[in-house]
Write a protein that binds this DNA or RNA. Structure first.
Length: 256
DNA sequence: ATGACGTGAGTATCACGA
């Protein structure tokens, strides 16, 4: 079973790329982030024409997440549903083949010290509480998506330059670690590539992709029992090439 | 100069991304 995640940075601007990638990679599940469209604007017909269903949690202009799958998913929930007043479409969860899936788009945080930065840290704390309240570490649970945090030095092209920059500040990395530790979750790609310096996002500016000045911020977090079934995980750097790409590459895991 | 691009909204320029 192949499960993928991709921050597509506007699904309407890239529907042709999306369809081509689904046909080429044939994942069983693809979690999408940054749809930048409402449920009504989502290109459902094109997705269904290539054999996928779509559970969509859209929002006008910003955010928006979806779960595409070859077979029907169960128990779909949109949002954290933790009682906090929050209308940002950043999380969708479902079950598929006995696996609890959570597809998420964590807040970016803008500048350190800004309201958006505080919201990001609070959002991580809320998600951690939700995991602790609703799941157990012995379940088959998988979180994937754009976490907007580079966890370690190896995940940043220049850790010294990023030391006090959003996505790599100590509070963000600690919030990510607390989320991971809540259920003993494992960073699947890093576990399978312990010494590799590779990225999943590159700035559109400054020739960042050809210079490979990127960050690894798109992740799969698995409970230990699910990690035992994970034999492969890769970042599809090819999908960042060519005309009008998303600034993120897709990431996938293969589960036995 | 670690230097500025892409998207949606709306129709000039701004908010936002990371």
């Amino acid at each position: 079973m192949k499960i993928a995640t991709w921050n597509i940075n506007s699904v309407r601007a890239r529907v042709d790329r999306l369809v081509a990638w689904l046909k080429a990679q044939a994942p069983d599940v693809l979690c999408l982030q940054e749809l930048k469209c409402t449920n009504e604007q989502f290109p459902r017909a094109e997705i269904e024409a290539c054999g996928y269903r779509a559970e969509v949690f859209g929002q006008k202009t910003y955010n928006g997440v979806a779960i595409l799958s070859r077979a029907e998913v169960g128990d779909v929930q949109r949002g954290l549903n933790d009682g906090v007043d929050d209308d940002e479409a950043r999380l969708i969860s479902a079950t598929f083949n006995g696996v609890h899936l959570i597809g998420l788009y964590a807040p970016n945080g803008q500048e350190v010290g800004s309201p958006a930065y505080a919201y990001k840290l609070e959002w991580y704390a809320r998600l951690t509480r939700v995991l602790e309240q609703r799941y157990q570490s012995d379940q088959a649970l998988l979180l994937c998506g754009d976490f907007n945090v580079a966890p370690d030095d190896l995940d940043v092209w220049d850790p010294r330059y990023f030391a006090d920059k959003t996505l790599f500040t100590r509070p963000e990395r600690e919030a990510f670690k607390k989320l991971r530790d809540s259920l003993g979750l494992v960073d699947a790609w890093r576990t399978l590539h312990p010494d590799l310096k590779a990225f999943s996002w590159w700035d559109y500016r400054l020739l960042a992709f050809p210079k490979n000045t990127g960050l690894r911020i798109d992740h799969f977090l698995l409970t230990p029992s699910l990690m035992a079934r994970c034999k492969a995980s890769e970042i599809d750097r090819e999908a960042r090439k060519g005309k009008q790409p998303s600034d993120h590459a897709p990431v996938w895991v293969e589960l036995t």
